[in-house]
């Protein structure tokens, strides 16, 4: 028991120690970083990747109106060049896009669409370059039933979204589809916890109903094949009182009784430490013989 207690306290201590921020900060490494593969479909580019927190691949389509999109590239998004950004919110990663507008300083309309996007998904990019602030740049979200959710953003050459900040006929932007990590984690958690209740409640109702059915079936069965009805209680006949026949009582003379007693005593003690006179021995022998005759029926 002490060993078990020691073990438990060790674990509790480990938990408390590990809760120190300097220790747990090291665990935030990005082991699920998406590895997108890009393919071109007409003028669009489609990427297939496994986002963070998923096991199956998804697709994101990049479409540009008013310009031409070069092959997108997935990019790292370290704290060094984009501070205060939590990569966990960007489950599909970040993309570096090169777009040639129809004219220098022109506007293009960039649309990202995917079945993976939800109404809560946003596209984030620079909203203020001086303070290096990132924010939403998704202007329009269209969600048609059965169609992938599309998020559109209008980008001007040389605007704050353009990496070089110059209206030079080339737009380069870094963007990321954003979903709140904690919003997703907690939201889905609550739903799933109550989901377990719901599933087991449905099972409970199913079992209660089937239980009732079985009970009623058993009751009907008992009604069809009733258990043998107990008839009138059998008359208990009092056995006739039989007088026991009188056993003839044999009179034993006192000396014989004494001899029997002595004989039994000698028999049970094996004659140890006893010395008898001849008469005494004779009496004992007679007593013993009589006793044996009485108990074993031997002829003496």
């Amino acid at each position: 028991m002490r060993l078990k207690q020691l073990y438990i306290w060790t674990m509790v201590t480990a938990l408390v120690l590990a809760s120190h921020s300097s220790l747990w900060a090291a665990f935030g490494e990005d082991i699920e970083k998406p590895k997108p593969v890009f393919t071109q479909e007409g003028t669009d580019w489609v990427t297939e990747l496994i986002p963070r927190g998923k096991s199956t691949p998804i697709q994101i389509r990049f479409h540009v109106d008013g310009g031409m999109l070069a092959k997108p590239v997935d990019t790292d998004f370290t704290d060094a060049n984009r501070p205060n950004i939590n990569w966990k919110n960007y489950r599909s990663g970040y993309f570096l896009l090169d777009i040639i507008p129809e004219s220098p300083g022109g506007e293009v309309s960039l649309t990202l669409s995917s079945n993976y996007f939800t109404s809560a998904t946003d596209i984030w990019g620079f909203t203020e370059r001086k303070t290096r602030t990132w924010g939403t740049i998704g202007i329009k979200t269209s969600s048609v039933k059965g169609e992938p959710t599309a998020i559109t953003s209008v980008i001007r050459d040389g605007s704050v979204l353009d990496e070089d900040g110059m209206a030079d006929g080339k737009i380069q932007i870094i963007i990321g589809p954003r979903d709140s990590f904690w919003g997703y984690a907690l939201g889905t958690l609550v739903i799933r916890f109550f989901g377990v209740f719901l599933v087991l409640s449905i099972l409970m109702i199913g079992m209660m109903l089937s239980g009732k059915i079985f009970e009623s079936m058993d009751a009907k069965k008992k009604a069809v094949f009733p258990a043998p009805i107990p008839g009138p209680a059998p008359v208990q006949y009092e056995p006739e009182a039989v007088e026991p026949e009188p056993v003839p009582v044999e009179e034993i003379p006192a000396d014989v009784a004494a001899a029997i007693g002595l004989g039994i005593h000698l028999y049970s003690n094996g004659g140890r430490n006893l010395r008898l006179s001849d008469d005494g021995m004779k009496a004992a022998a007679i007593g013993l013989a009589l006793h044996l005759q009485k108990t074993s029926g031997a002829e003496v």
């Binding site: 590990a18 747990w24 665990f27 490494e29 082991i31 699920e32 963070r52 927190g53 904690w182 984690a185």
Partner: peptide, 9 residues
């Protein structure tokens, strides 16, 4: 464990 930097999975 999410607070400790574990991934969702």
């Amino acid at each position: 464990v999410l607070f400790f930097g574990f991934t969702l999975k």
